[in-house]
Computed example of a mutant assay.
Amino acid sequence: MSEAIRLYVVTDNQEEACLALLGCGLSGLPAWMKMVSDPHEVEKLPSGTSAMGLFFPKGTGRNSYLETVWAERRERGGIDYDFGKHQEKLNDWIRRRDEAERRLLADALAQEPENQRGAA
């Protein structure tokens, strides 16, 4: 059973957005988070959704079509787009993820001498 999407990230560069927000590639994207780059999907974001926009301008000085669609969807209302609030929740998740990884690594390293003794 798939986990419900709790945060959408509207972006013109999914890989860069994932690296910037989570410090990992798209393969590390949690199941509760979805990157959205299709303007039609942005239009269909349901009311009550939490979302944040993260764009990587190409130096044209103008908003991309996706950015314009994102701005218009926010103006229609029903989207919680408080970037700072969502970023803080992501930072909390990253801290928990990193701590879990540290514990796994510590456990693996603690078992390593036992594995080496058994191999001798």
Results as ranks from 00 to 15, higher is better:
Ile79Val: 08
Val36Arg: 02
Ala71Gly: 12
Asn13Arg: 07
Asp38Glu: 10
Ala119Tyr: 09
Leu90Gln: 10
Trp70Gln: 03
Pro113Trp: 15
Gln116Leu: 10
Glu15Asp: 11
Arg96Leu: 08
Trp93Phe: 13
Gly23Phe: 11
Gly28Leu: 02
Leu22Ala: 12
Thr60Phe: 05
Glu41Leu: 11
Glu16His: 09
Met1Ala: 09
Glu67Lys: 06
Ala71Leu: 10
Glu99His: 15
Asn13Leu: 01
Arg6Met: 07
Ala17Ile: 07
Phe55Arg: 05
Leu7Asn: 00
Cys18Ile: 03
His86Trp: 00
Lys34Asn: 06
Arg95Ala: 10
Trp93Asp: 00
Val10Ala: 07
Ala4Ile: 00
Tyr81Trp: 13
Trp32Lys: 10
Met33Gln: 01
Cys18Phe: 09
Met1Glu: 04
Ser27Tyr: 09
Tyr8Trp: 09
Cys24Leu: 15
Gln111Met: 15
Arg103Leu: 12
Asn63Phe: 10
Arg62Gln: 15
Arg76Tyr: 10
Ser50Gly: 03
Gly59Asp: 04
Val10Gly: 08
Arg62Asn: 10
Asp98His: 11
Pro113Asp: 02
Ala108Thr: 08
Asp98Cys: 04
Thr68Asp: 14
Gly25Met: 11
Met1Lys: 05
Arg95Thr: 09
Thr68Pro: 11
Glu112Phe: 14
Trp32Val: 12
Ile79Met: 08
Lys85Tyr: 05
Pro113Phe: 10
Ser64Trp: 00
Ile94Leu: 12
Gln116Glu: 13
Val42Met: 03
Thr60Ala: 11
Lys58Ile: 04
Arg76Gln: 15
Pro30Leu: 13
Tyr81Leu: 07
Leu109Ile: 14
Gly23Asn: 07
Gln14Trp: 01
Cys24Ile: 13
Ala20Pro: 05
Glu72Ile: 12
Arg103Asp: 06
Ala71Glu: 12
Gly77Leu: 13
Leu104Glu: 15
His86Ser: 00
Ala110Asp: 06
Glu112Pro: 02
Ala119Pro: 00
Pro57Asn: 02
Phe83Ser: 10
Lys85Phe: 08
Gly84Thr: 06
Thr11Arg: 01
Met52Asp: 01
Leu66Lys: 08
Met33Phe: 03
